[in-house]
Nucleic acid binder design. Structure first.
Length: 577
DNA sequence: GCCGTTTTCGGCCCGACTGTTTTCAGTCG
């Protein structure tokens, strides 16, 4: 784990422990924010002279960070975790159990981890506690079971089709006028905790009843007049909010989040003598705790999101940029969209481990209106993927050129996804690489290399005169494999110097580079390639996930080589020839 | 613990739902 991530984990743990010890929520939030900031920081924090220069990190945290960098220890952290049993942190993850209750379970029922929690339920210790009834216990039992059977967050590639199916079912109900998903899914996060769906309808009861009784619902968690939550077979929680049409924009804004964006928006509102909530933006500078809409105050803006931003004198912010630290004051970038993409430069055929022939690949490209598609099968070291020997590659190049002759609508490039070997050399001789139209160099093995070796390895490939693109630079697989952790800044500088593009691999399990890599890469002036790495026709649909990640990173079409027209691309490729 | 276009002290977003209460604390998003 990198230093930034190690530190982030420590601050997160400290926040949780502080919560359990009953410390002020503001202190807890401050620590969580430090964790968040460190998690998203591209530069190694040890290279930053004064950590307080980073927004969200104050004097106290900066001292702790410095101590950890210099000594590998953090006295305050050690002192904190000593104060509670370590297993108590897991107990806090049980849905329905918050810090207050966990503290009581610990002090009054000797619950120290998930096992003792189960024991306390079984032997009746829990039921004996005040304010602890059978229903609460049943809910805890159920959450415990869920924790044991679930892996936590769900990949966007799994969640989006489910969310879209839910939206389409609900949209068909009588009376429904608007319906869409919000939350982290709308912000394009790579994994999500739950699916949030918003809906306007003239028949709320019908919608809620339908939602709670869908065939894949395994449990109804909450069912009120305006909101209900269910757990579905796929293991996710889905929330439905029924919204008045006039307040739809305010609700969409609120339920899209992120939490920190909501806090930001509300603070802006307060400074202007207004109040923002999920029902609208209100003129209200009173200290009255009764919500303005309950006091008969009419909203200034509520029906659509942009009217609220406008009323607050803010530019409408695309959902993907509504995160902590997404914007750096340079205004809202003109984010890339899927329709800006005009080519795919990383695809496989049956020659290695794909299912499409060269012709089928070309047809798929034409279907999508691409001017160019690159055939980049695996190189010889990738034996398990049927990687091509030099002799096979020579024949393959000829076959690709033949196919290219057959099509006037699309250019089929002869390329290779050549392995970057652990020492940074490539899997084919230079002469063979020179014969290709395009070279995507990717790491596939030795992905546990230390950061220094990984940096040297990838930089060497970036500097190679025949390499156009570094494919999935870290090799991470979301929730499965951390991949390489090179010094990204060095990679970006080398990429700019040698005019080598770095790939954002669009596959929903890769999304590599990640959103915060892209943000930093863009600032450095790196050219980004967004490719699907298609092995079968349906893989082209993965482009949307790459686009979502790119947008989260603030990528504009001008920085993405897949948005070049045919001439620009050809010129760019030929710079390396 | 962090922060400052009223502030270096005194704030820090806001509402729905549940369960066990008899008026509300706790949790969640």
């Amino acid at each position: 784990m990198s230093l930034n991530r190690e530190l982030a984990a420590r601050f997160k743990t400290m926040a949780t422990v502080l919560q359990l010890l009953g410390e002020s929520g503001f202190k807890v939030n401050a620590n969580l924010k430090v964790a968040d900031v460190l998690d998203q920081l591209v530069e190694d924090v040890s290279t930053i002279d004064d950590a307080t220069s980073i927004d969200g990190i104050g004097k106290g945290s900066a001292t702790k960070i410095k101590e950890y960098i210099e000594t590998g220890k953090m006295a305050d952290y050690d002192a904190l975790i000593e104060q509670i049993p370590s297993g108590l942190l897991d107990v806090l993850k049980v849905q329905g159990l918050g810090p207050k209750t966990v503290q009581r379970l610990w002090k009054e029922a000797n619950v120290v981890d998930l096992t003792t929690l189960q024991e306390a339920i079984d032997d009746g210790r829990l039921l004996a506690l005040p304010r602890m009834g059978q229903k609460t216990i049943d809910n805890i039992k159920d959450s415990l079971e869920f924790i044991q059977s679930s892996s936590g967050r769900t990949n966007i590639g799994v969640a989006i089709p489910i969310a879209e199916s839910l939206v389409s079912q609900l949209s068909n109900l009588q009376g429904v006028t608007q319906c869409e998903f919000a939350g982290s899914l709308r912000r394009g996060c790579e994994t999500i905790g739950d699916i949030d769906i918003l809906l306007s309808t003239s028949e709320p009861e019908t919608a809620i009843e339908y939602f709670c009784s869908m065939p894949n619902v395994t449990k109804v968690l909450v069912a009120g007049d305006t909101k209900c939550s269910v757990r579905i077979e796929e293991g996710m929680q889905c929330d439905l909010r029924v919204i008045d049409e006039e307040q739809y924009g305010a609700a969409l804004l609120y339920f899209t989040g992120s939490k920190s964006h909501n806090v930001f928006m509300r603070e802006v509102a307060i400074k202007q003598g207004r109040r923002l909530n999920e029902y609208g933006l209100f003129k209200d500078d009173s200290k009255d705790s009764t919500p303005p809409q309950s006091r008969g105050i009419e909203p200034i803006a509520a029906q659509c999101e942009d009217s609220i931003y406008e009323a607050l004198n803010l530019a409408w912010t695309p959902p993907e940029l509504r995160e902590e630290n997404s914007l750096d004051g340079d205004g809202i970038p003109s984010l890339i969209t899927a329709s800006d993409v005009k080519c795919d430069l990383h695809c496989h055929t049956t020659a290695s481990d794909g299912t499409m022939s060269i012709e089928e690949l070309a047809e798929e490209g034409i279907k999508r209106g691409y001017h160019t598609i690159a055939v980049t099968d695996h190189s010889q070291t990738q034996a398990q993927a049927n990687g091509l020997s030099p002799e096979r590659l020579v024949k393959h190049i000829k076959a690709i050129r033949n196919v290219n002759e057959q099509y006037s609508e699309i250019t089929v490039l002869a390329g290779s996804e050549v392995d970057i070997l652990p020492d940074g050399t490539l899997d084919y001789e230079d002469a063979l690489l020179e014969a290709l139209d395009i070279v995507v160099a990717s790491p596939h093995a030795a992905l546990k290399q230390n950061p220094d070796e990984a940096t040297a390895r990838l930089c060497k490939a970036i500097e190679h005169p025949n390499v156009h693109i570094i494919g999935h630079p870290t090799g991470r697989i979301i929730q499965k494999r951390a991949g390489l952790e090179p010094d990204m800044i060095q990679l970006f500088e080398a990429a700019v110097k040698h005019n080598t593009a770095l790939e954002l691999n669009a596959h929903s399990l890769r999304l590599d580079l990640r959103d915060w890599h892209i943000r930093s890469a863009v600032k450095h002036g790196v050219s980004i390639a967004i490719n699907t790495d298609a092995h079968r026709p349906t893989d082209f649909e993965q482009l949307r996930f790459g686009i979502a990640t790119a947008r989260r990173g603030g990528l504009e079409p001008k920085s993405c080589i897949n948005c070049f027209n045919a001439n620009e691309l050809s010129k760019w490729l030929n710079q390396k020839r």
